[in-house]
Nucleic acid binder design. Structure first.
Lengths: 192, 192
DNA sequence: ACCGACATGTAAGCTGTTACATGATTCC
DNA sequence: GGAATCATGTAACAGCTTACATGTCGGT
């Protein structure tokens, strides 16, 4: 029994069509909501394990002037495992936001330093939020196999998009609040 | 050089006052935004490493009828490391939401199964959102050392709270959408 | 009589990351 | 000439989890 989400994600993509490790890497990394570290190695080692456990089959295809491709297909056992996992209660969501941890001990910093830190974060979140909006605008690249599946994928993209918008509003509120402390400090200094 | 956030979180709490590993465990786990797995072991091993690297000092205090306590204090080097880390650009936030991954292959499920899955998630998110609201209502347990620090901690709590509210709205939108597919399916079946 | 809080640790194992290795083709 | 794409892998290491180990006190 395994719980590792990336292996199930691989089974999920293979349930659509046979794919190589390289294809899987592109498929997984293009979906922000699937959240993957970007370590392609993990995919190749996962495929070895999935094969060992009988969840996938593999055949090697030679190409001229290009490296050989290993094409993986889902076995019946793999399909069962996928279905079982989809129905199982998911792990609770966890948001790890290092910025919040930095902020917690940010009172050591000067107003300028805190402004720099939070400003950089605002810019980053702004960029992510814009990417989310852009993706929603041009229609999320969802599988178009059934209307319901399309809906599920659009909602998954919507989830990430909304999360970034919320974060953006929050960081702006934060910075407005910090500005007041800054102004207060400057007033004090002026009065001296 | 280390990047591990939990070690810096420990340094952060020790910058306020000397604490034991057990105290740290309680302090860290009580702050949702610091995001910690709950593995107390990690704290004890981190403290050993921090001591080895000269970031903390330790003295052992014997207690009668209770296990001895090891009280850790921040060294000057530790204080420098903390300040340096706080200023450094934080890792980008990452949200890993297993529910979204399940959803992505949820079209295999029946309407009833999907309703069960999303309903359970809604309940969980509802509970977390309620906890967040409750914490904001009774005033987040923030350190009250300076007004600015208090503000920073309240904003950190606010961040988590808003995130749960957004998630709650989203899951309700999802379930309303799924209901339509369900109704459509039932209509089709009725017409047959 | 049992559970939770107090208080710390070792050992084994699993997961995940980083560095390294190969090698052709196409685009700038 | 250098970077990116295609395509897969090994080896070493760092981080995190799980199981185990110990022992008292106070509440129900």
């Amino acid at each position: 029994m395994f719980i590792m989400s990336i292996q199930h994600t691989i089974l999920g993509f293979l349930s659509w069509r046979p794919l190589t490790g390289y294809d899987l890497k592109k498929a997984i990394s293009s979906q922000e909501f699937l959240h993957w570290s970007g370590n392609s190695n993990q995919i190749y080692t996962s495929l070895v394990k999935l094969y060992r456990d009988g969840f996938v089959d593999v055949r090697t295809e030679q190409q001229q002037n290009l490296p050989p491709r290993k094409i993986y297909t889902l076995t019946e056992r793999g399909r069962q495992e996928l279905r079982c996992w989809v129905q199982s209660p998911p792990d609770p969501p966890e948001a790890r936001n290092a910025f919040l941890a930095h902020l917690a001990w940010g009172d050591q910093l000067t107003a300028e330093e805190l402004d720099g830190l939070s400003g950089a974060y605002e810019k980053e979140v702004e960029a992510r939020a814009a990417m989310g909006r852009e993706r929603m605008r041009r229609g999320a690249d969802s599988p178009n196999r059934t209307p319901r599946e399309r809906f599920l994928w659009e909602m998954a993209h919507e989830n990430r998009s909304r999360a970034w918008e919320t974060e953006l509003e929050w960081v702006r509120t934060l910075r407005r609040g910090l500005k007041k402390f800054d102004d207060a400090g400057q007033e004090k200094r002026r009065r001296r």
